[in-house]
C-alpha cells in the first residue's frame, strides 16, 4: 500500500499581501495613480488569481486582460515588481523576495505601448509592425495548388525556427526593450524574432523584400544588445540569436552597402584581421563617413583630445604581440569559411 498520501489534509499557508496597482482611466484621470489592495493570499496563488480576487471581492473597476490563465495565450503581460511577465504564471509568494517595500507587490502595465486603462495597453502598434515587416510566409506554392502536396522540410530547418515559433506575442520583450523606449518606431524584438523565423523558412519567397525592410532605419541594426528581451522572455526564447541571425544574413546577402550598422560591424572584422586590435578613433567615420563625424562628433573629439582620451590623428594603435602568427590563423580561418559556404551552396 502506498502511504505518502496519509490522511492529513493539504496544509494551506496564508498571509496578507498588499498589491499596489497602477490605475489610470483616461476618461476621468488627469494622471495615473496607485491603489493599494491588501488581501489574504495562500501559497500557490498566482498574481493573476490575486487580481481576479481583487476584482471580484474588493474593487470591480480594476481593469486588466486575462484569457487562458495558463501561460499560453499571452494576454496578461504586465510588470510585476518592475519586470514584465505573465501574471498568470507568476507566483505571488515568489515575488515577495523581490518587493522593494516588504509585503507590497507593485503591479503596473507593460511599457513602450500606449496605455488604454489601468493594466491594459494598446497592442495595435505591435500588430502594425508585424504587417510592416511582412511577418508571414508568402508561399512558393501557388494558391491553386495548395493542399495537394506537402513540402519536405528537414529536421535541421525545423530546428532553426522551432524556438522562435514558441513566441506568444505577450509583448514582455517589447515592454523591456531599451531601443523601443528610446524610439517608438523601432521594429521591436518580437517582430525581429518573427521576421527571422520567416526568413529561415524555405517555403517563403519574400526573404529579400523582408530583409531589405529590416536593414532600414529603425530596423535590425538599431538593437543595442542589452539582452533584456531575451532575459524577460516568458518562453525563454533566445531572441538575440534571431537578431544576430538576421544581421549575419544581411551581411552575407547585402554586404555593407545598407547602413551604418553593417559598416560598423564589418569594421571590427577588418581591424582584428589587420592589427588584432580595434582602432576606435576611426570607427565613427568608418561607420558614418567623414562628414557625419565632423558634424556630430567634432566638439566632443576636441574635448577628448584635450583630455588625452583620444590621440590627435592619425591614430596609432600598437598591434597585438605575435600578430604575424595570428594574422596567418585568421586568414586560414577565412579559407575555412569560404569552403563552408561553397559546400553549403552545393
Amino acid at each position: 500500500m502506498h502511504m505518502t498520501g496519509a490522511a492529513e489534509q493539504h496544509k494551506e499557508e496564508k498571509r496578507d499581501i498588499t498589491f499596489r496597482v497602477f490605475r489610470f482611466n483616461p476618461q476621468v484621470d488627469i494622471k495615473p495613480y496607485f491603489d493599494d489592495y491588501t488581501i489574504p493570499v495562500e501559497r500557490g496563488i498566482t498574481v493573476l488569481r490575486a487580481l481576479n480576487y481583487i476584482k471580484e471581492h474588493v474593487d470591480p473597476t480594476v481593469s486588466f486582460r486575462a484569457f487562458c490563465q495558463a501561460g499560453i495565450c499571452g494576454s496578461c503581460g504586465m510588470r510585476v515588481n518592475g519586470i514584465s511577465k505573465l501574471a498568470c504564471t507568476t507566483q505571488v509568494w515568489e515575488e515577495l523576495d523581490r518587493c522593494k517595500e516588504p509585503g507590497i507587490l507593485k503591479v503596473e502595465p507593460l511599457r513602450n505601448m500606449p496605455p488604454i486603462k489601468d493594466l491594459i495597453v494598446d497592442m495595435d502598434p505591435l500588430v502594425d509592425k508585424m504587417k510592416h515587416y511582412m511577418n508571414w510566409i508568402d508561399s512558393s506554392m501557388p494558391e491553386s495548388e495548395m493542399g495537394k502536396k506537402e513540402f519536405l522540410v528537414s529536421e535541421d530547418e525545423f530546428l532553426k525556427y522551432d524556438k522562435a515559433t514558441d513566441c506568444i506575442l505577450c509583448a514582455s520583450c517589447v515592454s523591456e526593450c531599451t531601443i523601443l523606449r528610446a524610439h517608438k518606431e523601432y521594429v521591436s524584438p518580437a517582430v525581429l524574432l518573427k521576421s527571422y523565423r520567416m526568413n529561415v523558412d524555405s517555403r517563403d519567397t519574400i526573404h529579400d523584400t523582408r530583409l531589405a525592410e529590416l536593414v532600414k532605419d529603425h530596423g535590425v541594426w538599431d538593437c543595442t544588445h542589452c539582452y533584456r528581451c531575451q532575459e524577460t522572455c516568458v518562453k525563454s526564447i533566445p531572441i538575440m540569436d534571431a537578431i544576430h541571425g538576421i544581421r549575419e544574413n544581411a551581411l552575407e546577402v547585402r554586404g555593407t552597402k545598407d547602413t551604418s550598422g553593417a559598416k560598423h560591424a564589418e569594421a571590427f572584422m577588418d581591424d582584428i584581421a589587420k592589427k588584432g586590435k580595434l582602432v576606435e578613433a576611426t570607427l565613427p567615420f568608418r561607420t558614418n563617413g567623414v562628414l557625419w563625424t565632423v558634424k556630430n562628433l567634432l566638439p566632443m573629439a576636441v574635448k577628448m583630445i584635450m583630455k588625452r582620451r583620444t590621440p590627435p590623428p592619425p591614430p596609432m594603435v600598437k598591434p597585438s604581440k605575435g600578430i604575424k602568427a595570428f594574422r596567418e590563423e585568421f586568414r586560414e580561418m577565412t579559407e575555412h569559411v569560404k569552403d563552408d559556404q561553397q559546400s553549403h551552396n552545393k
Partner: peptide
C-alpha cells in the same frame, strides 16, 4: 586581440 565586441559573433562566427 580584440574580442570582436559583440559584433564579430554574427559577422563571422568562426573567426
Amino acid at each position: 586581440t580584440c574580442c570582436g565586441g559583440s559584433n564579430l559573433e554574427y559577422v563571422s562566427p568562426k573567426h
